[in-house]
Simulated assay, not measured.
Amino acid sequence: MPRAWWRQLLSRFDPTPIPDPLWRRALVSCPLARRLDDERQHALRGLSAAFLARKRFHPLAGAVLDERIRLLIAMQACLPALEQGVRCLRGWRELLVYPGEFKVRRSHHDEHSGVVSEAEDVLIGEAWERGPLILSLADVQLDLEQPWDGYNVVVHEMAHKFDMLDGPPDGVPPLPDGINRRDWIVAFQRAYDHLSNDVARGRETLIDPYAAESADEFFAVVSEMHWSQPGLMQRAEPSVAALLTAYYGPSPAPT
């Protein structure tokens, strides 16, 4: 039977159901969803319908979004919400989709010199606190074609969104009652420090070195690994892997 939160979703919010032919077509293209058991597939279908009803997609710079690709984005965005439910989707509404990489101009203030400099970053995804989620369509499609390579831009950015539910991102999202906050902080900080030390020393790492950029990027990167390479995540940091399973539920990826 569906979990209690799923019944609450149906009673509080009644999105338009996803038609069977569209759902079957999307499952063929999304191995992560296709490998879920029947109960979790059913939950994902309902969450995806709620996502499509609540979020507004904005194709930019010539990106083309048909109903199938919108659903595939929604499915990947809702995979990380399977355990926590629809409440994880709150706090934002807009989803911007570029055809490929996009540029973002940023200002940097040097605290020591007081100099403010500007630079352009080239990104494939970004999540703003209380603002939009931004994606590269080319990378979304690549993740669907190569689901077990350790990367998933939609999952990465959704992890940031979950992290921001209780304020600025810090690598600690709101946790369910079954996960001790102190245990999470200790395990993630230890793993982050270990990775940062290895990266600083030029050592090869099982976790993408980008995760050493900050605690919130570490959480987003290991979230990708949980869904696409859980075996490697288990080898790299068993305590973090166990917490990710408790938070997200078991990964359907081959181990």
Rank of each mutant, 00 (worst) to 15 (best):
F51W: 14
G125I: 03
E67H: 07
R106M: 15
P176V: 10
H109S: 13
V122S: 11
Q141W: 09
A127Y: 14
V186W: 10
A200S: 15
S48R: 06
D121W: 03
R90A: 15
R106P: 00
G171L: 01
L123E: 13
A119M: 10
C30L: 12
G231P: 07
L243E: 02
D14Q: 15
E237F: 15
R68I: 09
G91F: 06
D216I: 00
A77W: 05
M233K: 02
L47N: 07
R93K: 14
G85K: 08
A49F: 05
L142F: 10
I179Y: 07
G100V: 07
L47G: 05
E83C: 03
Q84V: 14
D193F: 01
L22F: 06
I179R: 12
E39S: 08
F188Y: 14
H194D: 11
L243M: 07
P230C: 09
Q41G: 05
R182K: 13
L72F: 00
H58K: 12
G178E: 09
L36D: 04
K103W: 12
V240G: 03
R12N: 08
E157M: 05
R70F: 07
D66N: 08
C78A: 15
I207N: 06
A26Y: 00
A50E: 04
K103N: 06
V64I: 12
A253Q: 04
G46P: 00
M225C: 02
V172E: 08
G114K: 12
R235S: 11
R45N: 01
Q141E: 15
R25K: 13
P252M: 05
V122W: 11
L22E: 07
R7G: 08
W6H: 11
V86H: 11
A138E: 15
L142P: 00
G85T: 07
G91N: 09
L243Q: 09
S228M: 04
V221G: 01
L135Q: 11
M158N: 03
P2T: 01
W92A: 08
N197M: 10
S11R: 08
H160Y: 13
R45W: 04
L52S: 08
D216T: 15
E120V: 09
A26W: 03
E145S: 14
L96P: 04
F102I: 01
M225V: 02
V115L: 14
V115E: 15
C88N: 11
L72R: 13
I18Y: 01
A61Y: 08
S29F: 09
D139V: 03
V199F: 04
T205K: 04
F188K: 07
S228C: 15
G150A: 08
D139P: 00
E204Y: 13
S196T: 14
Y247T: 01
M164E: 10
N152I: 06
Q229K: 14
A187W: 09
A242R: 11
I134G: 00
V97E: 07
Y98K: 07
R7W: 13
Y192V: 01
Y248E: 05
F51D: 11
Y98G: 00
M75N: 02
V115Y: 05
K103R: 15
I124K: 06
D198H: 10
R105S: 03
G131D: 10
M225R: 00
P252C: 12
R40H: 15
G249Y: 02
R87L: 08
